[in-house]
Structure formats: structure tokens, C-alpha cells
Nucleic acid binder design. Sequence first.
RNA 1: CGGGACAUAGUGUAACGGCUAACAUGCUCGCUUUGGGAGCGAGUGAUUCCCGGUUCGAAUCCGGGUGUCCCGACCA
Length: 434
Amino acid sequence: MSHGFSLSQMCKTGIIENMRQSQLFTKTRKEAPSDEQSTNAKLLIQGGFVHKEMAGVYTFLPLGLIVLEKIKNIIREELNVVGGQEIVMTALQQKDVWEKTGRWDDEVVDDWFKTSLKNDTELGLAFTHEEPLTHTMKNFISSYKDLPVYAYQFQTKFRNELRAKSGIMRGKEFLMKDLYDFSKDKEEHDAFYEKMKGVYMKIFKRVGLGEQTYLTMSSGGSFSKYSFEFQTITDAGEDVILYDAEKKIAINKSDFSDELLEDFDLKKEELNLEEAKSVEVGDIYTLGEKYSSALGLVYKDAEGNDRAVYMGSYGIGVPRLMGTIVEVFNDAHGIVWPEEVAPFAVHLLDLESGGKADELYQMLVDEGVEVLFDDRDARAGEKFADADLIGIPLRVVVSKKSLGQRGVEVKKRNEEKSEMMSIEDFMEDVKSEK
RNA sequence: CGGGACAUAGUGUAACGGCUAACAUGCUCGCUUUGGGAGCGAGUGAUUCCCGGUUCGAAUCCGGGUGUCCCGACCA
């Protein structure tokens, strides 16, 4: 019998793997904040996952950070599979590097946050990292033998958005995973680009959004006629896509045209397109030689000729992805986290169990199960309500009532029914899931 | 950046230009209670966003700021 969690899949964060809820400094709120409209912000604040500092700027509290780290770990694992090497670049940016590509100008990039050193030297707070990384790579790439290179980071981006909105889905300061590919030529880049489509879908599948996320055709970036983005269907979205659920393809409505269909060899008659609001959870761009030639990132090919490195960039807004997950998975009582990104695998509730719950908690910890133990001196109703709000996939109750029957009551967050079973059987299941 | 709405204890709300700014919740203490945010009692908690103006008197009216949310434009 399966209880819906898989220890083998659990991705340890190294932050908090188990915890007594009485020690958790955050508290849930009875009411949603009045200054938030979006579901993700309401639920995440109510559950104590995040705290709003200002519009579009959110602090991640323990529960929220665990989720964020889980998402990061999933991304990390999948990127490492295809040869990604993780780095962290700086948020402070020097002007001259950006001037070489023309992107320092406020007329060109209108959401810069700029600041300065004591001596009045102008600095920027990075809104992306093509320029600095391309510049950095000049130190390490000089031969075709050095290529390709796939470097990525999780880094805070600063964007002076005119309007932050949708809770954690569009902030002025947010964590972004950005990967850059440095390839010998278009062919090598294209092969990686194709591979990344699969990598991204795998990531979105693992965070629980596989079903509602579509590889979506849209108008291209600087170096290709078209580019691809990943759109997750939800009413909280700002985009509109036309999608074929059978064929699992989608087109951004704003870029839809007969020409596009033709270019992708699609026949309108053969498509069963539906329209839906969606969120852009990721995008992948071909950059070509734009940045490498502007910044002089060249390598010697086998014939000894200088050639510009061919590049691409691949982004995922991590908080946006987290917010999207909340938007897609919630009900009237709270969040319903998908297994792989849930802050804990088990929410253990002690309802006057006379110490039995403590024993079970220790057993679970010993087995390496990620468990939040509600050992608070609170009433049943409050504990149930909080468990629903926080949304951990499996709820296990140890109470006088459960002990009077078989032992523990086990219930999945996304199901109505619960099941009584003995502690021994439950632990047996836990071990077999490992 | 264009348009709209709103701003009152930690949180959610109420209050006609007029009494010590009210209620709920939270928090503290006591008693009671223990399977869906229980009950009783006693406490705690506010420069009514800021600055200025009108008025005998402003949470309330006026002006200007600032902040938050929403629509549009732009973006992960």
C-alpha cells in the first residue's frame, strides 16, 4: 500500500529536515492579509511561508525557504545531468561591461536599479547576467577545446518594475536560475537548446506542474525568429496561450499567426486548440553571437581562426515557479503541495496521545523521514486547520481516539478519506517506500 | 508610466465633523475543556500612514506626499 510519498524521491535541503512545530517561530494566521489579492501571496503569508517587506519584495521564512530550496535542488539536479556547472555571480555590476552591449542606457533597459560607489562610480544591480558572465568567460575560454561550457546560477535579480503584482510571481527582487550555454557554433548550440526543452519539461514535471505546463512557441529573441517559453495553465496567469492538450503543444496567443504555423509545419485543421490563461514559468533563448562579439569572447578553432562563441540563455524564476505551484494546487483550506516540493513529507499531529506521538516522531526521524511534528499545546481544530493550510502531503494523527482503534490515522492532503492503521504497519510502509 | 480603489492595535474589521476610537481575533494569567481555529473571567495592545489646511472641535472634510492592491503597458 502506498501513502503517496517516496523517500527515494525526497530531495534533502540541508536546511531543516524535521522540526517540532512548537519551535517554529512562524505562526499561521486565521485571516488572509488584506493587502494581498493573489492566492499565492494570501496562502503563503497566512501559512507563514513568506513575509512581505514591500510590494514585490518578499522574505522567505523557514517553511518557504525549504520549499524554495527543494525547487532549486530539483533544477540543480536536472541541470547537472546535462553538464551544467553552478556558479554565483555578483549583483553589483560595472557600467562599462554593459555599455559594450548598449544595455546600460535607461532608454534601452528601463528597469535598472542603479547605485554608485562613494567616489561616484556608477554601478548597477543586475537584472540579468549575460554581459558579466560573457566577460568573465574570456578568462576561461580561448580554444574550441574549451567548449562547450554550460554555467548556471541561482541569483537575485533586481528589476525596477513599474508594477509588482501577483504576489511572489512578479517581484522587484527575485531569485532566478539562469543558465548560459557557450557553444562553438549554431549547430552545437541548437543541439543543446533542443536538449534543454526536455530538461525543462522534466523540471516542471518534478515540481508537479507537468500536466499543465506547455512548451510554447513565441516570437523570437534577438537571434532567432522564434523562441520557446514554458507556460503553465492557471487563471493567475498574465499570458494567454492556444494549446492542444492531445499533442501537448502551445502557441502564445499574442504571437499566433498563419506564418508561425507554417514555419513550424503545423496545419490549423489538425490542431484542436483551446485558449487558456497561463504563467510563463521559464524561457529559453538563442542569443547567438550578440554578447560574445560585443564583449570579445572568441576562441581559436582547429584551423587557428578566431570565432565568436555562440550562446543561449535559459531562465526560470524560482519564486514565480513556487507561486505558480500554489496557484495550481490549493483548495478552500489551504495549499496542497506536490510531493517533491512539499516542505515536509509528513505532518505528524499529536492530539493528547500521552507521549505516543513523540515516540513515532523519533521513529520517523530515525528513518530519515522529513517530518513536521505538531507538538503544540493546541486544540485539535487548530491543528487540523493549520495542517490543511500548510499543505504537507501526508497527515498522520496520533490521538486517544486513534490509539483506541488501531494506532494512527493517516490521511493524504489531496484526499478526503483517512485510514486507521497500526504504528507498526505505518512504519513498515514508510520503510518500504524508502 | 496611464487609469481606478484603498490606508484605523500583531491580524481582520467598525465608528454621522462631537464622550476615554469600538468589535473580533491574537498575546498574557486563572479556571474549565480536548477530533475541525471551544467556554468563562481578568489583563495586554493605536501618534487612526505622513505633512499641512478648514473648523470651537477631524479617524471622518480639503490639499500635497507616501504606501498597498487592481486594470492597462512591460517582464521570469
